Amino acid sequence: MSKELPDIGNLVRHRGPMLLIDRLIEASEIHAVGEVLISEASSFFKPGRGVPAYVGLEYMAQTVATFDGARRVATGEAPAIGFLLGTRRYAATRGYFLAGELLSIRAEMIFNEGGMASFDCTVSVGDEPRASATLNVYRPENGEFASTGNIA
């Protein structure tokens, strides 16, 4: 993949207030890293509190989608729709992501076969992990991850 990463709107099918990831900052054959700056304008923001930590699950899922979108865009394909099948061990260190925090969301592929894949994901602020989970995902179309499998 080229060092110049595409705009987030070209990598995922989400639009408007449901596009929660601000940008893709890193991608390889096995991982992607997205960023989100938490502000009062962030979707799901609760004044005086921030964005509930459970939204981190969707930040992770959309980072997985950017992983697949980047692979597809690199081969001239459009982003595909995928499905979050489930998660294991979602854990957050606190109840909210705070205004002004720059979140880094890392999704690392650990399994990929026949349209199903699994990713270890973390949401961090600086070097401090704030949430983690394993996501299981599925992309039902014929497309494949650039290296070995399927997904979005």
Results as ranks from 00 to 15, higher is better:
residue 110 I to G: 09
residue 139 R to P: 01
residue 121 C to V: 10
residue 118 S to A: 13
residue 132 S to D: 08
residue 145 F to P: 04
residue 106 R to K: 12
residue 139 R to D: 14
residue 115 G to R: 06
residue 136 N to L: 14
residue 113 E to Y: 08
residue 143 G to D: 06
residue 125 V to M: 10
residue 145 F to T: 07
residue 135 L to Q: 05
residue 144 E to G: 12
residue 118 S to W: 02
residue 134 T to H: 00
residue 121 C to K: 05
residue 144 E to P: 04
residue 112 N to H: 10
residue 124 S to C: 12
residue 122 T to F: 05
residue 135 L to F: 04
residue 132 S to I: 12
residue 125 V to Q: 10
residue 130 R to Q: 14
residue 124 S to D: 12
residue 134 T to M: 07
residue 109 M to R: 12
residue 106 R to H: 11
residue 105 I to V: 14
residue 121 C to D: 05
residue 119 F to Y: 12
residue 132 S to V: 04
residue 112 N to V: 15
residue 114 G to I: 06
residue 116 M to Y: 10
residue 128 E to T: 15
residue 113 E to I: 11
residue 115 G to Y: 01
residue 136 N to E: 13
residue 131 A to C: 10
residue 128 E to F: 02
residue 111 F to E: 06
residue 127 D to W: 03
residue 114 G to D: 09
residue 134 T to I: 15
residue 119 F to K: 02
residue 145 F to M: 08
residue 127 D to K: 08
residue 145 F to L: 13
residue 123 V to A: 03
residue 146 A to M: 10
residue 133 A to N: 06
residue 132 S to Y: 01
residue 129 P to V: 14
residue 135 L to S: 01
residue 103 L to F: 00
residue 136 N to Y: 08
residue 113 E to C: 09
residue 106 R to W: 01
residue 118 S to L: 07
residue 103 L to Q: 04
residue 104 S to Y: 00
residue 112 N to R: 13
residue 146 A to K: 04
residue 113 E to H: 09
residue 139 R to Q: 15
residue 111 F to A: 13
residue 136 N to C: 10
